[in-house]
Write a protein that binds this DNA or RNA. Sequence first.
DNA 1: GTTATTTGACCTGG
DNA 2: CCAGGTCAAATAAC
Length: 281
Amino acid sequence: MANQLLEVLAHDKSITHLQKEEEGSKSVLPFVEDLVRNVLCSFTNTLLLLNSSNDVSITLRDVSSSTTTSPKKLESVDETCKNRSILTTENRRRGYKRKSIAPSWEKNSSILIEDGYVWRKYGQKMTLNAKYLRSYYRCTHKNDQGCHAMKQVQRIQDVPPLYRTTYYGHHTCKSRMINSEIVLEPLSPSASSTLLSFNSSFHCKQENPFPSSLLAPTKHELVEMIHDEHSAQNQLSSLEDLLLHDCEVDCDYSRRVANMLSSAESVEFENVFMSSLDYVG
DNA sequence: GTTATTTGACCTGG
DNA sequence: CCAGGTCAAATAAC
């Protein structure tokens, strides 16, 4: 389509150019043409980049399946495969990819929080210097929408219970959000031209994983809490009452300010804001 | 029957 | 080599 646009521009160039000259005004066509060429250039670069990264992953995969396994290990694997029909080197699982991105968001919380997205647990692990299991979650829309958001939940303290949730990547899915139709009034008269609507499309672009509400633990997280606490029922109801009220107010304010900043600034602002909530609260 | 969780094996970066 | 991240079969939940 960009190519077609370029052809159309080239075709009409002479005519428009003459018209503009007659009117004595400056033509914007050269600028537009450059723009289209830049777009085409970006497409080309992107495709090159994608192709080259595919090559890299294929190469790495081939290398890993053929050379990184020592002869000694191969022997032991083959031995167990005789009895249990586990994977051999040839039918060993493919596409294994280890996370290499830096965390995009980290949050400590006295309770397990519901961030509005639907997560699927894919593993848990006991880590070296931790007393509790670390749970691994990925977005439930990984397969149907290709969303690569992930999070880890690690309990870091028993009494009072404290959890560290670390987020990796960003949601690209269209998750169903709770309270997805909140319309906020402007902060000040100077900001009165900005109407903020927190509909579902906005939330999809949010980098902050705490977009609207809140604080109702997921099924799995609830089970963990009930296992952990003697008076789980009382704790749940009182915490939910308290935090639903406080955090709705606080997070609304946070979002109103953050929405008037650029996306990078807004993430930074919300990080600072949520930290200050921790400090105060 | 479909979807989510559990859990032991597998894989890899450091 | 190994700690930590991921896979996928078995199992549970719905």
